[in-house]
């Protein structure tokens, strides 16, 4: 198949950028989207042009490194699919494809399609953990966790930290990312001691990083390659409200 690509090119963090048109010819429908970009890059290199920079690593949808806005949809048209797992059979021959980086103040562009998502790490630093230094833990089976709880916790823990939620959000809010971690840890008995302190500090950090506000469009849930539910946001808000009333104490 033959495609026309419109790709955001930007030489560096402070350089101006623009959309540039490329032709991608002889693309196999069995290629992944990133393999299609590989082919384009091979050609650009051969022609003496600078290849397109984009983040990627595992190429099996779990590391969260890749993430492109494809035709205005975070991670492209397939639901529950990261960019690396998107295959070209999802596009029709002759299609025009717009490829842009994640856009948010908290995700500054580094080059072309690669952005800096360290803001998400800092949200985790604010409290996205259970304080349990190595050693000194009790026998794993001494903590009973109902299967339903652990299954729900796992649904949220599946977050790969790709940032698609914030990229897709019309308000550039990272609520789904933050809420997924708050929900994962908040559903487990081990997470209870820090539950309310965690909600306060992670929510606070999210604002400091310059993310916008959740207005519950639901775009994040649709964009999430792990299909994490916006129910987690309800839970985050509940924990935050309760924490604000109790001052973080139970």
């Amino acid at each position: 198949m033959n495609l026309t690509l419109h790709v955001w090119r930007q030489a560096g963090p402070d350089a101006p950028g623009k959309m540039v048109r490329y032709e991608a010819n002889d693309i196999s429908p069995d290629m992944s989207f990133l393999e299609m970009l590989d082919v384009v890059n091979e050609r650009l290199t051969a022609e003496g042009e600078t290849p397109i920079a984009f983040d990627h690593d595992c190429r099996e949808g779990i590391c969260g490194a890749c993430g492109l806005m494809i035709n205005g949809i975070a991670h492209g048209p397939e639901k529950g699919t990261a960019t690396c797992q998107l295959h070209m059979r999802s596009f029709s021959d002759g299609a025009a494809i717009y490829i842009e980086p994640w856009r948010a103040r908290a995700f500054p562009v580094i080059r072309d399609l690669a952005v800096d998502r360290s803001s998400l790490d800092r949200i985790i630093q604010a409290g996205g953990f259970i304080t349990a230094a190595t050693g000194g833990s009790q026998d794993a089976n001494a903590i009973l966790v109902p299967k339903e709880n652990v299954d729900d916790a796992m649904d949220s823990a599946a977050c790969i930290g790709c940032g698609a939620c914030a990229a897709a959000c019309p308000n550039a809010s990272a609520s789904l990312f933050t809420a997924a971690k708050i929900t994962h840890l908040g559903l487990l008995p081990q997470g209870q001691p820090e539950r309310y302190r965690r909600a306060l500090s992670m929510v606070g950090r999210m604002d400091l990083e310059g993310f916008g506000s959740c207005t519950l469009h639901g775009e994040c849930q649709e964009a999430c390659p792990k299909e994490i539910s916006i129910d987690t946001i309800t839970r985050m808000n509940r924990d935050f409200l309760r924490a604000s009333v109790t001052g973080g104490r139970e």
Partner: peptide, 12 residues
């Protein structure tokens, strides 16, 4: 929170 917008955005 989004100083630079998208050239194309499709709401889902």
């Amino acid at each position: 929170a989004r100083p630079v917008g998208y050239a194309k955005q499709e709401h889902q």
